[in-house]
């Protein structure tokens, strides 16, 4: 899954033209040639710090994102679905690990980043602050949330920072699997009993707008300088605007909803022949900003669960460290 890379308007930095500082000529040349910046290469400090923030937020989203789906592992309605869901949530833990490792190449460590998450100084994707009320939410998350994540992430496979780009290649392969599994689970519900169909439609009604919000606020047209977009594009980290990616997602998803036999909850959704795209209704970004500020339905619960797991595991991590030190000391003593 994916962490949206944007901030609420109150803490978004303004984009400024990047003067070429001495020593960064190679950086700009590599970015200009669409090459990859590697950890030991010189890079602007705000490129580094912006990537740390983005990659960490993405990693945190994978870890927090385990919770809403993890809630349904014990209740999955068939053993096959249970196995698929367990594997999916496990994949998310794996994505978190790749991403924390990618962030660590920029000179921070995982413990530091987790501390920032636990103290609210770094964020995770707003989408995970919504509850998973029924089994149909699991299929819907796979289809819509992982679907939106793929649209966001595929361009990141070509992002200018090598370790992030390479992590994304693997993540995208797995996400694409999750998206197909979600679609298939939802198809089964939609074509099952009337109650199952109703459950599927209800879940899609609840997840559609939050999924569109995953792409972030408007950042094209009159909003072209909003948020991190302009700088991020100049650095070759971001390739397309939030609005372009959102449009791509809508265009991809509408025919899939038709194939599922489900409707999308937007009366303004219709094909626009002249644009060659679907038009869709106005997104309530106030809701998004409220959720980012911590006022979503599950923010407090997600953070409390995350902190509890971390605190309850402290004695285990301390034991592992103590044991590693003891065995290293014994080895040294044995060699002496």
């Amino acid at each position: 899954m994916y962490g949206n890379d944007f901030a609420s308007p109150s803490d978004a930095p303004s984009a400024s033209p990047e003067p070429v500082e001495p020593g960064l000529e190679d950086f700009w040349r590599i970015v200009g040639e669409d090459g990859r910046i590697e950890p030991r290469d010189a890079m602007p400090e705000d490129y580094r710090s912006s990537l740390v923030r983005q990659i960490a937020q993405h990693a945190h989203s994978e870890i927090i994102g385990m919770q809403p789906e993890g809630e349904w592992i014990s209740r999955a309605p068939s053993l096959r679905r249970k196995a698929i869901l367990m594997a999916k949530v496990q994949d998310e833990a794996g994505h978190g690990l790749y991403l924390y490792a990618a962030a660590e190449t920029l000179g921070v460590d995982r413990a530091e980043l987790l501390d920032m998450l636990h103290t609210g100084r770094q964020k995770y994707s707003s989408i995970f602050n919504y509850p998973t009320l029924t089994w149909a939410d699991i299929g819907t998350i796979g289809w819509l949330v992982d679907g939106a994540a793929i649209v966001n992430q595929v361009p990141l496979c070509r992002c200018s920072y090598g370790p992030y780009a390479r992590a994304m290649v693997r993540v995208c392969k797995e996400e694409s699997f999750h998206q197909r599994q979600g679609f298939e689970a939802l198809y089964t519900l939609s074509h099952g009993t009337p109650q199952q169909h109703e459950m599927a439609q209800d879940a899609v009604d609840r997840w559609w707008w939050p999924s569109l919000m995953m792409f972030g606020p408007h950042d094209s047209g009159p909003h072209a300088t909003a948020g991190h977009t302009a700088k991020s594009m100049a650095w070759g980290v971001k390739r397309f605007s939030n609005d372009d990616l959102r449009q791509r997602f809508v265009d991809m998803t509408v025919p899939q909803a038709e194939a599922l036999g489900l409707t999308l909850p937007d009366p303004d959704l219709r094909w626009n022949e002249s644009r060659g795209h679907y038009d869709f209704g106005e997104i309530d970004f106030n809701e998004l900003f409220e959720v980012i500020k911590g006022n979503g339905p599950c923010n407090a619960e997600r953070m409390a669960n995350r902190r509890r797991a971390h605190e309850e595991g402290a004695w285990v991590r301390e034991a592992a460290t103590a044991y590693a030190e003891k065995t290293a000391a014994r080895r040294t003593a044995g060699a002496a």
Partner: peptide, 8 residues
Amino acid sequence: IAKAPQIE
């Protein structure tokens, strides 16, 4: 799953 002492 999602409650372990560390991500590994």
